[in-house]
Amino acid sequence: MLWGFVLAVVFKKHGVLPGFKLTLGFTILYLSLIVLIPLSATFFKAAELGWSGFFDVVTQPRVLASYRLTFGASLAGALINAFFGLIVAWVLVRYEFPFKKLIDALVDLPFALPTAVAGIALSSLYSTKGWIGSLFYAHGIKIAYTPLGVTIALTFIGLPFVVRTVQPILEDFEPELEEAAASLGATRWQTFSKVIFPAISPALLTGFALAFARAIGEYGSVIFIAGNIPMVSEITPLLIITKLEQYDYPGANALAVSMLVVSFLILFLINAIQRWSQRRTL
């Protein structure tokens, strides 16, 4: 027993479990081979183009049109998700209704369903002959094969993010705060907008940013419903593939680098939001 105690003290002092060098070494090696080296190679390749060459590629009219569509539809999708995702999270946490557990589990479907499957399903559903698309087409609105269709697909792909970031915050929200607001004479809407909403807004913002980031790079679920008309409904990831198929490797690479830079900026932003909200709650 005493010997064990002595050993424990020794361990505490040096804090050493075995295998640190082995596991860290393997982690860094594997990370470098699979992720870091291939990713940095794209940046080196882009550098071969030079600034002006890079600038020429990413400012071609067709490329600019694809940026407008990709970022515009991603933003629209993320906004739709922020609004409806908040309602879904609210309803799942606060109210009781039949099949709630099942519905709750199915919210994660966009994470689990292969994007190609989502793509052909949404395309059929929202085409002019589809279950939903025909309802809108009766009023002269075409959804599939237009930028609206791209927005639908990008809304689908980002759907779980807002729900899953807001849900736990709502679950942990202290009832006392709401009761205090009500007893001080606040209406239900005032309680929501002045007490509850400020508490969930960092999570809402994080969910929105995650949905937006996911939408920008999305390919599989979009290309079936988009129609892919150059200048109109062609997203940037598809344009990368088009350039690749035309053996325009420097062009494809330049577009990829522009997307990587944007993705990393958003990742940085999301980390900043989370740090900011953690500091705020402390």
């Binding site: 291939p38 494809a252 990829a256 997307m259 993705s263 990393f264 958003i266 990742l267």
Partner: peptide, 17 residues
């Protein structure tokens, strides 16, 4: 990091490499 990389770009980096 790979979560924030577009799948198309993920494929492309290996094609280029």
């Amino acid at each position: 990091l790979p979560f924030s990389v577009s799948p198309v770009v993920a494929g492309l980096i290996y094609v280029l490499l």
